[in-house]
Amino acid sequence: MSVGGARVLAWDGPTRVFKWTLVLLVLDGWVSNRFGASLPQWHIWNGYLALTLVVFRVLWGFVGGSTARFSSFVAGPRRALAYLRGAKYLGHNPFGGWMALGLLALVAAQALTGLFSADEDRLIIEGPLAGKVSDATVAFASHRHHLIFAALEVLIVVHIAVNLFYAAFRRDPLVKAMVTGEKPAADYADMRSAAAGSWGRAAVCLAIAAALVFGGITAAGGRLF
Protein backbone atom coordinates (compact mmCIF):
# COMPACT_ATOMS: atom_id res chain seq x y z
CA MET A 1 0.00 0.00 0.00
CA SER A 2 2.70 2.43 0.99
CA VAL A 3 4.12 4.20 -2.06
CA GLY A 4 7.91 4.11 -1.70
CA GLY A 5 7.70 4.95 2.00
CA ALA A 6 6.11 8.30 1.15
CA ARG A 7 4.38 10.01 4.04
CA VAL A 8 1.41 12.34 3.96
CA LEU A 9 -0.04 14.79 6.40
CA ALA A 10 -2.90 13.31 8.44
CA TRP A 11 -3.29 15.79 11.31
CA ASP A 12 -2.18 19.41 11.28
CA GLY A 13 -0.30 20.99 14.20
CA PRO A 14 -3.20 22.77 15.91
CA THR A 15 -5.32 19.60 15.87
CA ARG A 16 -2.53 17.58 17.49
CA VAL A 17 -1.71 20.22 20.08
CA PHE A 18 -5.42 20.45 20.90
CA LYS A 19 -5.75 16.68 21.22
CA TRP A 20 -2.84 16.13 23.60
CA THR A 21 -3.62 19.24 25.63
CA LEU A 22 -7.12 17.91 26.16
CA VAL A 23 -5.66 14.56 27.26
CA LEU A 24 -3.54 16.38 29.83
CA LEU A 25 -6.50 18.44 31.04
CA VAL A 26 -8.70 15.37 31.49
CA LEU A 27 -5.92 13.71 33.49
CA ASP A 28 -5.38 16.89 35.46
CA GLY A 29 -9.10 17.11 36.13
CA TRP A 30 -8.87 13.78 37.90
CA VAL A 31 -5.61 14.65 39.67
CA SER A 32 -6.83 18.05 40.84
CA ASN A 33 -9.99 16.52 42.24
CA ARG A 34 -8.17 13.70 43.99
CA PHE A 35 -5.21 15.63 45.33
CA GLY A 36 -6.08 19.29 45.02
CA ALA A 37 -8.80 19.72 47.62
CA SER A 38 -6.68 22.30 49.42
CA LEU A 39 -6.53 24.30 46.17
CA PRO A 40 -10.08 24.30 44.75
CA GLN A 41 -9.06 26.84 42.11
CA TRP A 42 -6.81 24.21 40.54
CA HIS A 43 -9.76 21.99 39.62
CA ILE A 44 -11.99 24.92 38.71
CA TRP A 45 -9.45 26.43 36.28
CA ASN A 46 -8.84 23.01 34.80
CA GLY A 47 -12.54 23.00 33.95
CA TYR A 48 -12.46 26.48 32.38
CA LEU A 49 -9.55 25.42 30.18
CA ALA A 50 -11.16 22.12 29.18
CA LEU A 51 -14.36 23.93 28.21
CA THR A 52 -12.37 26.51 26.25
CA LEU A 53 -10.58 23.72 24.38
CA VAL A 54 -13.81 21.94 23.50
CA VAL A 55 -15.31 25.18 22.17
CA PHE A 56 -12.10 25.72 20.22
CA ARG A 57 -12.43 22.23 18.74
CA VAL A 58 -16.01 22.90 17.65
CA LEU A 59 -14.90 26.06 15.82
CA TRP A 60 -11.86 24.23 14.44
CA GLY A 61 -14.24 21.57 13.16
CA PHE A 62 -15.55 24.16 10.69
CA VAL A 63 -12.43 26.11 9.73
CA GLY A 64 -9.49 23.86 10.67
CA GLY A 65 -7.40 21.34 8.79
CA SER A 66 -9.25 19.06 6.40
CA THR A 67 -9.17 15.94 8.62
CA ALA A 68 -10.29 17.99 11.64
CA ARG A 69 -13.45 19.25 9.93
CA PHE A 70 -16.73 17.68 10.95
CA SER A 71 -17.76 17.58 7.29
CA SER A 72 -14.86 15.19 6.64
CA PHE A 73 -15.37 12.75 9.47
CA VAL A 74 -18.94 12.81 10.77
CA ALA A 75 -20.32 9.77 9.01
CA GLY A 76 -23.73 8.18 8.70
CA PRO A 77 -24.43 4.46 8.95
CA ARG A 78 -23.84 3.90 5.24
CA ARG A 79 -20.25 5.05 5.39
CA ALA A 80 -19.80 3.04 8.56
CA LEU A 81 -20.98 -0.12 6.77
CA ALA A 82 -18.69 0.59 3.83
CA TYR A 83 -15.85 1.02 6.30
CA LEU A 84 -16.57 -2.39 7.82
CA ARG A 85 -16.12 -3.90 4.35
CA GLY A 86 -12.52 -2.74 4.35
CA ALA A 87 -12.00 0.94 3.60
CA LYS A 88 -8.98 2.69 5.11
CA TYR A 89 -9.09 6.25 6.37
CA LEU A 90 -6.46 8.95 6.62
CA GLY A 91 -8.40 10.88 9.27
CA HIS A 92 -11.05 9.50 11.61
CA ASN A 93 -12.76 6.44 10.24
CA PRO A 94 -16.57 6.57 10.74
CA PHE A 95 -16.40 4.90 14.15
CA GLY A 96 -13.39 7.00 15.13
CA GLY A 97 -15.43 10.05 14.23
CA TRP A 98 -18.24 8.96 16.49
CA MET A 99 -15.75 8.37 19.27
CA ALA A 100 -14.26 11.85 18.80
CA LEU A 101 -17.74 13.39 18.96
CA GLY A 102 -18.63 11.29 22.01
CA LEU A 103 -15.47 12.27 23.87
CA LEU A 104 -15.95 15.95 23.03
CA ALA A 105 -19.58 15.85 24.12
CA LEU A 106 -18.74 14.20 27.43
CA VAL A 107 -15.90 16.62 28.21
CA ALA A 108 -18.24 19.50 27.37
CA ALA A 109 -20.97 18.07 29.61
CA GLN A 110 -18.44 17.46 32.36
CA ALA A 111 -17.18 21.04 32.22
CA LEU A 112 -20.69 22.52 32.00
CA THR A 113 -22.05 20.54 34.97
CA GLY A 114 -18.90 21.50 36.87
CA LEU A 115 -19.86 25.17 36.60
CA PHE A 116 -22.94 24.43 38.73
CA SER A 117 -21.43 21.79 41.02
CA ALA A 118 -20.33 22.02 44.63
CA ASP A 119 -19.69 19.76 47.58
CA GLU A 120 -22.85 18.97 49.53
CA ASP A 121 -22.38 21.77 52.03
CA ARG A 122 -20.97 24.29 49.53
CA LEU A 123 -18.04 24.70 51.86
CA ILE A 124 -15.08 23.09 50.13
CA ILE A 125 -15.42 23.67 46.39
CA GLU A 126 -18.02 25.56 44.40
CA GLY A 127 -18.27 26.04 40.64
CA PRO A 128 -18.55 29.69 39.54
CA LEU A 129 -22.29 29.48 38.85
CA ALA A 130 -23.28 27.26 41.81
CA GLY A 131 -24.09 30.36 43.82
CA LYS A 132 -26.67 31.37 41.21
CA VAL A 133 -28.82 28.23 41.43
CA SER A 134 -30.78 26.28 44.03
CA ASP A 135 -29.35 23.55 46.25
CA ALA A 136 -31.38 21.01 44.27
CA THR A 137 -29.80 22.16 41.01
CA VAL A 138 -26.33 22.01 42.57
CA ALA A 139 -27.03 18.49 43.84
CA PHE A 140 -28.29 17.46 40.40
CA ALA A 141 -25.28 18.97 38.61
CA SER A 142 -22.79 17.47 41.08
CA HIS A 143 -24.32 14.06 40.74
CA ARG A 144 -24.15 14.29 36.93
CA HIS A 145 -20.59 15.59 37.25
CA HIS A 146 -19.64 12.28 38.91
CA LEU A 147 -21.63 10.09 36.52
CA ILE A 148 -20.29 11.79 33.41
CA PHE A 149 -16.75 11.24 34.59
CA ALA A 150 -17.46 7.53 35.00
CA ALA A 151 -18.86 7.43 31.45
CA LEU A 152 -15.82 9.34 30.21
CA GLU A 153 -13.54 6.77 31.83
CA VAL A 154 -15.33 3.98 29.96
CA LEU A 155 -15.08 5.79 26.60
CA ILE A 156 -11.40 6.57 27.20
CA VAL A 157 -10.60 2.94 27.94
CA VAL A 158 -12.38 1.83 24.75
CA HIS A 159 -10.71 4.62 22.76
CA ILE A 160 -7.19 3.66 23.92
CA ALA A 161 -7.80 -0.07 23.46
CA VAL A 162 -9.10 0.38 19.92
CA ASN A 163 -6.18 2.62 18.94
CA LEU A 164 -3.64 0.15 20.31
CA PHE A 165 -5.48 -2.62 18.46
CA TYR A 166 -5.21 -0.72 15.16
CA ALA A 167 -1.51 -0.04 15.68
CA ALA A 168 -0.75 -3.64 16.67
CA PHE A 169 -3.01 -5.70 14.40
CA ARG A 170 -4.17 -3.48 11.56
CA ARG A 171 -0.82 -1.82 10.82
CA ASP A 172 -2.53 1.56 11.04
CA PRO A 173 -0.26 3.69 13.25
CA LEU A 174 -3.02 5.90 14.65
CA VAL A 175 -1.29 6.93 17.85
CA LYS A 176 1.97 7.75 16.09
CA ALA A 177 0.05 9.77 13.48
CA MET A 178 -1.55 11.85 16.20
CA VAL A 179 1.97 12.62 17.52
CA THR A 180 3.92 13.19 14.29
CA GLY A 181 0.96 14.24 12.17
CA GLU A 182 1.94 11.89 9.34
CA LYS A 183 0.81 8.56 7.97
CA PRO A 184 2.18 6.39 5.20
CA ALA A 185 0.75 7.38 1.83
CA ALA A 186 -2.03 5.01 0.81
CA ASP A 187 -5.30 4.74 -1.01
CA TYR A 188 -7.38 6.27 1.77
CA ALA A 189 -11.15 6.45 1.47
CA ASP A 190 -11.54 9.98 2.81
CA MET A 191 -8.61 11.88 1.25
CA ARG A 192 -5.10 11.17 0.04
CA SER A 193 -3.48 13.92 2.07
CA ALA A 194 -4.72 16.42 4.62
CA ALA A 195 -4.70 20.17 4.06
CA ALA A 196 -3.36 21.84 7.20
CA GLY A 197 -5.28 24.56 8.98
CA SER A 198 -3.20 27.63 9.74
CA TRP A 199 -1.84 28.48 13.21
CA GLY A 200 -3.17 32.00 12.83
CA ARG A 201 -6.68 30.73 12.29
CA ALA A 202 -6.24 28.38 15.26
CA ALA A 203 -5.19 31.33 17.42
CA VAL A 204 -8.33 33.23 16.40
CA CYS A 205 -10.50 30.18 17.20
CA LEU A 206 -8.84 29.84 20.61
CA ALA A 207 -9.34 33.54 21.34
CA ILE A 208 -13.03 33.31 20.41
CA ALA A 209 -13.43 30.16 22.51
CA ALA A 210 -11.81 31.79 25.54
CA ALA A 211 -13.95 34.90 25.10
CA LEU A 212 -17.11 32.78 24.92
CA VAL A 213 -16.25 30.69 28.00
CA PHE A 214 -14.86 33.38 30.30
CA GLY A 215 -17.21 36.05 28.99
CA GLY A 216 -20.15 33.67 29.30
CA ILE A 217 -19.40 32.75 32.90
CA THR A 218 -18.86 36.38 33.84
CA ALA A 219 -22.01 37.49 32.02
CA ALA A 220 -23.99 34.82 33.89
CA GLY A 221 -22.83 36.45 37.11
CA GLY A 222 -20.13 33.91 37.94
CA ARG A 223 -16.93 34.76 39.80
CA LEU A 224 -13.98 33.20 37.98
CA PHE A 225 -11.75 33.11 41.08
Binding site: G36, A37, S38, P40, D119, E120, F140, S142, H143
Partner: peptide, 23 residues
Protein backbone atom coordinates in the same frame (compact mmCIF):
# COMPACT_ATOMS: atom_id res chain seq x y z
CA UNK B 1 -6.24 30.51 52.01
CA UNK B 2 -3.27 28.12 51.91
CA UNK B 3 -3.47 27.00 55.53
CA UNK B 4 -7.22 26.62 55.82
CA UNK B 5 -7.22 24.99 52.40
CA UNK B 6 -5.05 22.19 53.75
CA UNK B 7 -7.60 21.51 56.48
CA UNK B 8 -10.51 21.49 54.02
CA UNK B 9 -8.48 19.13 51.86
CA UNK B 10 -8.67 16.54 54.64
CA UNK B 11 -12.43 17.13 54.95
CA UNK B 12 -12.88 16.45 51.23
CA UNK B 13 -10.64 13.40 51.14
CA UNK B 14 -12.68 11.79 53.89
CA UNK B 15 -16.06 12.85 52.45
CA UNK B 16 -15.09 11.53 49.00
CA UNK B 17 -14.37 8.07 50.34
CA UNK B 18 -16.57 7.66 53.37
CA UNK B 19 -19.62 9.88 53.06
CA UNK B 20 -22.71 8.73 51.19
CA UNK B 21 -23.85 11.24 48.58
CA UNK B 22 -27.46 12.30 48.92
CA UNK B 23 -28.46 11.45 45.36
Amino acid sequence: KPNFGKVLGVCKECHDDYREKKN
